[in-house]
């Protein structure tokens, strides 16, 4: 299978005053692949995400998305249009569901733009025209398929804020998927999950990649997730990219080990120690 590029990030730079949060980062994320962005805290991972999804107004550089919907230059688009037109969906590090709306409503709201068009920008919906009822039925079926998949069908009328933490994480992913994106950006989806939930998440992500044929961009600290499912890893440190490669390449990259374990000056890690660390899943 040939790899087709989905997102090409070229020379992305983001400054906040004097601080350079992201410094000349270039990488490519491919279609039907999971690309992980890792790095120590404060390395600029979330900043890259925020630039991609239009939450910062003026990133420098070029963000070229070539998905099924055509070609878009994300750096020139408004926040909501990136999700609406270009088809980039995201989740957040601190879960941002609509807590007082029900689980089902969360998934229906995600299909806003489709439903809005079907409801003739509300007019047809107010009159209860058939066109809108059909669209609403389809939206419900899509939501139901995701609820079945997450095992949340019985909780569809719960307030989303009352779900257990792990379910909230997965619901947020399902909600993003309901926008039918070409690129799904996940900001630490495994944070706060126990090992069983984390394994479920891995299954969900690989399934999503394979069944929906989309690209996934992933920020994650949980190395069992990163190493287990990523096709391709990018490592950031202090805003710069220090490595780019397959999991096994990145795992043995000395610059990455230094970034995670601190500067050891001239001293190299003895191979046994590095091996132990890998087994513990800390790198």
């Amino acid at each position: 299978m040939t790899r087709s590029p989905l997102l090409a990030v070229e020379h992305l730079t983001m400054r906040f005053g004097g601080l350079v949060a992201v410094d000349d980062v270039s990488f490519t994320a491919y279609d039907r692949e999971i690309t992980a962005i890792i790095g120590p805290n404060g390395a600029g991972k979330t900043t890259v995400f925020n630039c991609l999804t239009g939450f910062y107004p003026t990133p420098v550089g070029r963000l070229r998305l070539t998905g099924g919907r055509g070609e878009f230059l994300l750096e020139r688009m408004d926040g909501f249009r990136i999700a609406q037109k270009a088809g980039v969906a995201r989740t957040f590090q601190n879960i941002r569901l609509f807590p007082r709306m029900t689980v089902l409503e969360n998934l229906i709201v995600a299909q806003h733009n489709v439903l809005m068009r079907a409801s003739g920008y509300t007019a047809a919906g107010l009159l209860g025209l058939r066109r809108y009822r059909v669209a609403e039925h389809e939206a419900l079926e899509l939501a139901r398929s995701w609820l079945d998949r997450l095992g949340l069908t019985a909780q569809s009328d719960w307030e989303a804020g009352n779900l257990p933490y792990g379910s909230q994480r997965r619901l947020e992913i399902a909600r993003a998927m309901c926008t039918k994106p070409v690129l799904l950006c996940l900001d630490e989806p495994a944070a706060g999950l126990n090992p069983r939930e984390s394994a479920e998440l891995r299954g969900l992500l690989t399934e999503t990649r394979d069944q929906h044929g989309i690209g996934i961009l992933l920020i994650e600290h949980d190395m069992s997730v990163v190493m287990g499912i990523s096709d391709h890893i990018i490592v950031l440190d202090y805003g710069s990219m220090i490595a780019d490669g397959t999991p096994s390449e990145v795992r043995s990259d000395p610059a990455v080990i230094r970034a995670y374990l601190g500067e050891e000056e001239t001293e190299q890690l003895p191979p046994e120690v590095a091996g132990d660390l890998h087994q513990e899943g800390r790198i």
Binding site: F80, A83, Q84, A89, R96, F98, V109, H112, A176, T179
Partner: peptide, 8 residues
Amino acid sequence: VACRALGI
């Protein structure tokens, strides 16, 4: 913020 991320 979540609304914007969903394209609303």
